[in-house]
Design a protein around this nucleic acid. Structure first.
Length: 278
DNA sequence: AGCTCAACCTGGCTGC
DNA sequence: TGCAGCCAGGTTGAGC
């Protein structure tokens, strides 16, 4: 379930094992992902050292000697560090070898991405995929009431429902379908309300809710970090307890009214019709 | 420019 | 048990 918290927990889980190490080999088992894995990627990455692993939105950026390895987990991707002696499993798509350890991308639905961005001289921010992303929810620019101001300003004259506005990631990144419902519940805002009709106080509540929900999820996932170097362990994160998402017809945890499910932009949204006003 | 919707791909669950 | 149909955590790009 890779929304921002899961990607961040993955980053925290794999980084300590890989930083400072050299890629000894790369094997592309099935490169037909969201975009084709570059054919020459194994040759490019060979012998390059990992300097850092950063995150931008739901992308992981691995800084190497001559550029960045971009990783995206799509809908079903997981990245795990395991002993390289472990056998490949079905749906393992790419394996990065670091001597006795392997970093493996496992992705049944193949919506993930493994891409190469050459050059380390500050050009990564201009990458076409990263450039259009909104503000990071934990960046100083989004702290306190600044986040509310960003949401307010970017949503003016937008007729789109706030659920879809938030999910699109143009204003703030990292809020996927689950945490979108959760954030709107937390902020007590109706998901179908037009983004352009949000008041300033609502935008501040929403910004606070987004940070709160994402931070809680990171902390919950962080407790399972040890699983990242365990060949028999779980992916390293799990579904946190939700108050709205996937709770159709179950009583709202605040007012007991049944949670409603609607479809917006081909995706399910869950909300409390009593607590979340338009 | 903004909005809607189809598409990418596979597995798992539901219901007949 | 078998199978058709539907649903799923993300994101782009075509068409209006």
């Amino acid at each position: 379930m890779p929304e921002l918290p899961e990607v961040e927990v993955t980053r925290l889980g794999i980084a300590p094992h890989l930083i400072g190490r050299k890629i000894s080999a790369v094997k592309v088992i099935d490169g037909r992902l969201r975009w084709p894995v570059p054919r020459n990627l194994p040759k490019i990455l060979q012998d390059q050292k990992v300097h850092s692993i950063e995150r931008r939105g739901k992308y992981l950026l691995m800084a190497l000697d001559t550029g960045y390895l971009l990783l995206h987990l799509g809908m079903t991707g997981t990245l795990r560090v395991l002993p390289s002696s472990d056998l490949l499993k079905p749906h393992d798509r790419v394996t990065f070898e670091f001597g006795k350890l392997s970093l493996r991308l496992h992705d049944p639905r193949k919506f993930g991405a493994v891409l190469w961005h050459p050059n380390t001289k500050g050009t990564i921010d201009k990458n076409a995929l990263l450039q259009k992303l909104g503000t990071e929810p934990f960046a100083p620019e989004f702290a306190g009431e600044l986040g509310g101001r960003i949401l307010y300003e970017r949503s003016r004259r937008r007729s789109i429902a706030v659920k879809q506005f938030l999910l699109a990631g143009q204003a703030v990144v990292g809020v996927g379908n689950i945490y979108c419902s959760e954030s709107l519940f937390e902020a007590k805002i109706h998901p179908a309300k037009a983004a352009g009709k949000l008041t300033r106080p609502e935008c501040i509540r929403l910004a606070n809710a987004v940070r709160f929900i994402l931070q809680n999820a990171i902390e919950a996932g962080g407790s399972s970090l040890k699983d990242f170097v365990n060949s028999e362990g779980n992916p390293g994160y799990f579904m946190v307890q939700t108050k709205a998402y996937d709770r159709k017809d179950q009583p709202c945890k605040v007012c007991k009214i049944p949670i409603k499910q609607i479809v917006q932009g081909q995706r399910s949204t869950y909300f409390c019709p009593q607590c979340q006003k338009r």
